[in-house]
Simulated scan of single mutants.
Amino acid sequence: MTEPDTQRALLRLEADGDSDAEELDRLARRLRAELGELDVDLLPVAAELPPGAKGADPVTIGSLMVAFSAAGGVFPGLVDTLRDWLGRQAGKHKIKVTIDGDTVELERATTAERQQLIDAFVQRHG
């Protein structure tokens, strides 16, 4: 996407405390696959590996940059997909969505609480 109305959101998946790096990688791959069905571009997140490191750290594994059109209601659909994905997971995972330094944290809250939070975020960035 190279249109001037393109926005980017950094998604950071945080698995519950019982998950290891392998589980986080598996969760991140499932989330990427589901997001790949949307009208968004999935971009890599640059990772700076320390000297001698053999792989990415858990924060990098669970991070994904998403580029989408600011027009056409793509962002609310993205947020709905994230919310639905979280609802289908067995663990108490959360996803942090950051746009222009503004972050919202999606997790297993009541439907009303999540909707209130998402509506406020969408109004600022949708």
Rank of each mutant, 00 (worst) to 15 (best):
A47R: 13
V45W: 04
D20P: 01
M65A: 15
V40F: 07
L10K: 14
D41G: 11
R32L: 04
G36H: 03
K54L: 09
R29M: 10
G52T: 06
R83L: 11
P58C: 09
D84Y: 03
D41M: 12
V79N: 00
E48A: 13
R29Y: 00
D57M: 08
V45F: 10
E37I: 03
E22I: 12
G62P: 07
L11Q: 03
L86C: 03
R29H: 04
R88D: 08
F75C: 03
L24N: 05
A15Y: 07
L78M: 09
V45N: 05
A21Y: 11
D18H: 12
E48R: 14
G17K: 08
V45E: 14
A9Q: 03
F68Q: 01
F68E: 02
S19E: 13
A56N: 09
R30C: 04
E23C: 11
R83P: 00
V45A: 10
L35P: 01
E34M: 11
L78P: 02
L10E: 15
D18N: 13
D39R: 13
D5H: 15
R26F: 13
A70V: 08
D41K: 04
F75I: 02
L35F: 05
L10M: 15
K54T: 10
L82I: 09
G55E: 11
F68N: 00
L49K: 13
R83C: 05
A15F: 10
V79E: 02
A21K: 15
L86I: 14
W85S: 06
L35Y: 02
G73L: 05
L13K: 06
E14G: 10
S63C: 14
G36Y: 06
G73Y: 00
L38N: 00
E22G: 11
T81V: 08
V66D: 02
R26H: 08
A9R: 01
G17N: 06
Q89S: 05
D39V: 05
R30F: 06
D80Y: 02
A70W: 07
D84L: 07
D18Y: 10
W85D: 07
E23M: 13
V74D: 02
L64H: 01
P58W: 04
P76D: 04
A53G: 08
A15S: 15
L49E: 11
D41Y: 11
L13C: 10
L27E: 07
G36M: 06
V66P: 02
E48N: 10
D57C: 06
D16P: 12
I61H: 02
R26Y: 12
A15K: 01
S63T: 14
L35V: 11
G77W: 01
K54V: 07
Q7W: 08
R26A: 14
D84C: 00
T60S: 15
R29V: 12
E37M: 05
D20Q: 12
V40C: 03
D25I: 02
L86R: 04
L35D: 05
L86K: 09
Q7L: 15
R83A: 06
P44W: 10
D57K: 10
K54R: 12
G87I: 00
A46C: 04
E34Y: 01
A53E: 13
L64V: 14
L11Y: 03
L38S: 00
V79Q: 03
R88A: 09
E22S: 11
G87L: 06
L42D: 05
D41H: 14
D18C: 07
A56Y: 05
E14Q: 14
V59Y: 08
V66K: 03
R29L: 10
